[in-house]
Design a protein around this nucleic acid. Structure first.
Lengths: 133, 133
DNA sequence: GGATTACTTGAACACACATTCAATTAACCG
DNA sequence: CGGTTAATTGAATGTGTGTTCAAGTAATCC
């Protein structure tokens, strides 16, 4: 960290005419603030959502549920991804924890559907990535 | 998969009055279509973006760059995250590959800024997760 | 009630990933 | 040029994560 501060000081020296250690301190504060403007537990929560989505099996499930625009039975989802029954259940569970899908029991069957959060994220992701190189 | 088809057949049997194997076939097709409506290489690309974001170090970097609304020097970013110089470089590199940051060399220093894609994703993520339980 | 079916949970393991250290490139300065 | 600094790259390693197998729960049907 001392190393880092040294380098930052030299960098600021080039920009500002002169640069006292007060300037370095101030810049360090500004940078710190940028990172922590949102609460740390909100960021943790956002990371949970991202981790839940960042997996082929789970992302496929979310995309299918969003595209379906209706709830689907676990047995239907099983036809969509190439994992064991148990693997599917683990995947759905992680998605539910992240607030990306919601489940409802219907007799023997369990139905899941995408949440608004999932719809919003998939939409932006598709849009952002299709406007691509 | 045979197992899966059996279960799906029983499920469809409950919904439809009668259910022939043609019905099962049709539903399997529909489900398949939902999953593959977007090209497979687009989905791969979306997964790259998600994987790049789904890490505390990298997500912090992106959030800081988005919040900064200007390019920052690597030496400034070093003050924001708690990894080695090399770790930071690896992190930035992965973000650049995913099209989330763009770099520019300025003499000895290297400047990075968030791309529109990064801004869009962070914005939706913050909005979607803050409207929370 | 007992049997079957639908799904979930927990433990185990193999694999991927994030981070670090060491070496390297590229730019500036004397 | 030689030396210093900024940043990157590659190899090594410890940790986390995805998946499966085996066992468990809950609902239905006879």
């Amino acid at each position: 960290m001392a190393q880092t501060t040294e380098r930052l000081r030299r960098y600021l020296d080039e920009g500002l005419e002169e640069c006292c250690s007060e300037d370095v301190e101030r810049r360090l504060d500004e940078l710190e603030t940028l990172g922590t403007e949102l609460g740390t537990e909100q960021v943790a929560s956002e990371l949970d959502v991202l981790s839940a989505l960042a997996n082929r099996t789970r992302y496929t499930l979310v995309r299918v549920l969003v595209a379906a625009e209706e709830e689907l039975c676990v047995c239907e989802l099983n036809a969509v991804v190439d994992v064991s029954e148990s693997g599917l259940s683990h995947a759905i569970s992680k998605l539910a924890d992240a607030g990306l899908v919601e489940g409802r029991k219907d007799g023997r069957w369990k139905m899941y559907r995408a949440t608004n959060r999932a719809v919003a994220l998939v939409t932006v992701l598709e849009g952002s990535v299709s406007a691509d190189e």
